[in-house]
Structure formats: structure tokens, C-alpha cells
Design a binder for these strands. Sequence first.
DNA 1: ACAATAGTGTCTATGAGACAATATGGT
DNA 2: ACCATATTGTCTCATAGACACTATTGT
Lengths: 246, 246
Amino acid sequence: MAGQDRVQETGKGSGKSGQLDFPRPLTTVDVVIFTILDDRLQVLLVQRPAGEEEPYPQALALPGGFVDVAKDRDLAACAARKLKEKTGVTSPYLEQLGSWGSAVRDPRGWSATHAYFALIPADASALTSDARWHPIVGGRAKEKLAFDHGDILASAIQRLRNKVEYTSLPAFLMPAEFTLPDLQRVYEIVLDRPLEKSAFRTRILSADMIEPVAKMRRGPNRPAQLYRLAKGREPVYFVRTFNPPE
Amino acid sequence: MAGQDRVQETGKGSGKSGQLDFPRPLTTVDVVIFTILDDRLQVLLVQRPAGEEEPYPQALALPGGFVDVAKDRDLAACAARKLKEKTGVTSPYLEQLGSWGSAVRDPRGWSATHAYFALIPADASALTSDARWHPIVGGRAKEKLAFDHGDILASAIQRLRNKVEYTSLPAFLMPAEFTLPDLQRVYEIVLDRPLEKSAFRTRILSADMIEPVAKMRRGPNRPAQLYRLAKGREPVYFVRTFNPPE
DNA sequence: ACAATAGTGTCTATGAGACAATATGGT
DNA sequence: ACCATATTGTCTCATAGACACTATTGT
């Protein structure tokens, strides 16, 4: 109970002499994976196992699990592994979201999870059988999630919406080739409000984040220029947000 | 080594039946505490103990340490406790910065730290004897820090600078009463570049983040209006950054 | 009166919002 | 020709940057 206090003074020293024999929290990593599917923002959820001693049996949860100290070099590698295992996708946009830790979030004991969030194009993924896309409705999933995964998801959605106001993040949700109206639609889906066509194009094109390919998308109307992501993978930051309406 | 893989499938389930007997990473919390002192941005560092089996004996480190599963309700409470223990400050600005975890960052084994960053007014703190302020020079501390604390500090500085561009965060570095030129100076110290007086005042005043008190600061020149923080504690977000020079 | 800093005003440039106008394919 | 959507242009407004100007104290 007390008596382990000393180990937390000063840096992460053990105070005395390498005494590391005190209870350790459980350490997990969870990944909030977003995509755009059927003109909606969707999140990847898995169903928890049914065992009797399982917490939240059969409930929906974010993909994730315990850190494997033998297998995972670091937290990001652990997150990337889980992303890969569930979707087959290797190198999309993967960013740390934050961590959640408390005595009560997992009935098995004090636990802390390191949450990541990822953006992938729906067409690039090959889901495992236990994983499914669930649309975000009204800022969250329709179903109740296990643990505090509902909170984590809400936080991820907020972070995504926030960043979409002033970054090129939605570009990572696009397939390899896309048109400007496609991209604008994705911005609008995430922000849940319409954007001005003209201002949108000016901003995106002047950001040098995409480059035209020598092809047009044809349809029953005027063809649209196709673009692909430019440069490396880093998102672009704008100096202004899209002006909120209010 | 392997064999524990199964526990990480699907949510944070243990796969089989509550098998929790596998190696757990060490779990720590570290806090990057900033203040403005002597017209410079400074960070609070503590000296690690000298014991033989200590990692990084006597090196400088961020204040922090192991999570105490008996004492700490959650991660934020743990961070607040460490902040309080070292500075005596209770409720300043405290935000989660991120987490760092890997097999090699601590010689004692796989470890993950949850890093927080805090902003406090220098005049409100009463430091413990092992803690001292260290100026940030050229974007980092002059000394080499223990563990990966140099990386964590660099990340905190970057986050702070970034947010100062479009938020009212520096207000949390101010004493109870301050003038607009005082506040501007703090913005300039953190950003390390001069800001336009007129644009600065317009932005700050129209944000409703501070309110005048019925006092003036007197000096050998024209007196300046004193202000204090308005509303609750939440920072204000501007829709535009201060336009970078270049 | 003068120094020094606080606070305001003016002018210009940039980019968003609104929305109109034009372009180009399929049918 | 007509429809539907892509793409461009025009006009107005808000706000930052530059910088000049005014205000108010102590000395």
C-alpha cells in the first residue's frame, strides 16, 4: 500500500537499490482506426472474446491488447503491429492520441493504455474476420464499447475534427488517386458541414500537398483532374482554420 | 518470449482465461514543468539519486517516477501529485503530452512513461531542495538528461511553441495580475521572436481571455492597465496563428 | 521639457465567404 | 442542345503586419 512511495521520488529512480518488486499496472495499446466508407466516417471495432472470466465478454472494443515485451520494440511498433494484424495496412498515418490509465478502467486491475489513431483508405484494407467498420453517428459509435473505449474514441474523433480544420490529414483517408471534389467531400464528411468550393481549392492547391497526375476522372459530366499525395507522408499545417460558421 | 502473443488479440482480452502472468512493463509518469523566470523559459529538473544500481546516477531528469497503484487513482492524479510534491503548486495548467515506451529506454527493462506538461507562474512555486529551474537555451536544456528525457523535453518545447502560436497558453505562465506588455513579452520569450504590439493587443483583447482589474502598474513611465485571467481555466484557441515571418 | 513605455490609428496585403460565371464532358 | 459537375473569377470582409501617432507617467 504505502512503502512503495519511495520508489517514485526523483526521476524514475527506485530510491533504494533497484527494488522493482512492487505491483505494476497492466500496459496495453489500443488503436483507433478511421476510414471513409459509404460517404461516412467509420471506425474499426473488434468483438471481445466470450470467455467467462473475460472483462466485457463479446462487447465491441478498439483493436489493441497487451504490450508484448518480447515482441514489441516500442509503443509505436506495437500500434503498427496491431494495425497491420487487423487491416493488413502497413504504413498509413499513425499518430499517438494519448494515454488512459486508472485503477478502475479494467476490472483486472490498475491498467494504462497507450492509444494511437490511424487514418487509412478503405480500399487498401483487408480486414480480419473479427474486425468490422462501424459508422460514426453523432460524434460516436452507435454501440457501447468495452472499457473506456467510448471515451478514447470520442477523444480521437475530437482530435481528428480539430486537426482537419487546419491540416491536410484527410489526404491520408484518400485512395491513391482522387479529385479535388473527392477530397472536399471527405473534409465535409469529417467536419460535418459544407465548405466553400473556391476557398477550399485555393487553400489545398497552394499548400503543395498534392500533385496532379496525367489523368482525368471521367463521368457523365465535366471530367475532373486526378491528384495524388505529394512529398513524404507528413501532414501540412495551415496558418488559418476553415472559418467556423456559428 | 512468444506464447504470450495470444493475450494481445482482440481488445485487451487475455485470450484464454484471465491469464495475466506475463511480464509487465514498468509504468512511470514524468512531468515537464515550465515557467518564466529571469525573462527566460525554464524547466524544472531534479537530480537522480547516487546509488550504485541506479540508472543514470546523479544525472538531471524530469520530475516523475513509478505509478503507485495504491496511491494514484489515475494518471492525471499521479502527474498532479508529482507536480505538487516538487513545486507546491496545485492547480495550474496540466496537459498530457504523450507517452514514450520501449525495451531500451530504461536499463531496468521494458518501460513506458506517461508524460505531462505543466505551466506555472514562477512566483507561485515553492521548490523542494532537489528541484531546480534550468533555462531552455536553443530549444533545449544545456545539460544532458537521464533516460530519454531530453527527447521528452524537446517534444514538450515543440508542443508549447506550437500551441502558443494559436492559443492563450502563456496566460498560465503569468502571475495573478499582469499587464498586456508583460503578456506579450512572455509570448515573445516562448516563440523567440518579436510580435506586433497592435495586432497582439487586438487579438488578446478580442479573445475575452483576460479582464482588467481596477488597478494600474506604475513605473517611470506611463502606467499600464493590470489584467487577470478571466473565466475558467480552459485555454482559448484562435482561428489563426501569429503569422510566421519568413 | 524629456525619456520611456502604454496604447491607438491608418494603410496595405492576404485569404476566406459568398456567389456568379464559365468550361467540358456525356447523353 | 441540355444536364451535371468541374473550375475560375469577382466582390466584400476580417484580420495580421508595418509603422506612425498620441497618451501618461516620473524625473
